[in-house]
């Protein structure tokens, strides 16, 4: 787990870390590819919520170049298949995510990210 769909929703939320706090940078990761059921309604419904550039950049870092740099206006089946694969089938199982701004490290253990903040990072 930590699929890219989730990664695309998570920003650093430490106190006073409000700019350049997204996307979190993956480090020392182990990937797994797991097949997921394809659902075009789900994908289309989710597209307006995506930060496209962050998604494409992260996918490319992980070695997947199937997505276009710009979010297309018209979606076809081929595009949806690629989006499905990137969002739902790539799982980051181990490693960490680092905030580009404050450098907080969020560790990932057995596919579950620990997004808790330390005492000095909360208000």
């Amino acid at each position: 787990m930590v699929r890219l769909i989730t990664h695309n929703l998570l920003a650093c939320h430490a106190k006073d870390c409000n700019t350049n706090n997204f996307p979190l940078e993956f480090k020392d990761i182990q990937l797994e590819i797991r097949e997921a059921e394809f659902n075009s309604d789900f994908l289309k419904g989710f597209m307006p919520k995506l930060e496209w550039k962050a998604l494409v950049d992260t996918a490319r870092q992980l070695g997947d170049t199937s997505l276009p740099l710009e979010q297309p206006e018209m979606v076809d089946d081929g595009f949806l298949k690629s989006l499905h694969h990137v969002l739902l089938e790539i799982h980051v199982e181990e490693g960490s995510m680092t905030c580009p701004n404050c450098k907080h490290v969020y560790p990932i253990l057995n596919g579950i990210p620990n997004m808790l903040l330390a005492e000095h990072e909360i208000g």
Binding site: M1, A36, E51
Partner: peptide, 17 residues
């Protein structure tokens, strides 16, 4: 495959963008 993801956080300090 319908469990999208699990994450550890406190909703009062949540990382949702």
């Amino acid at each position: 495959s319908r469990i999208m993801d699990l994450a550890v956080f406190d909703i009062t300090r949540n990382p949702l963008r």
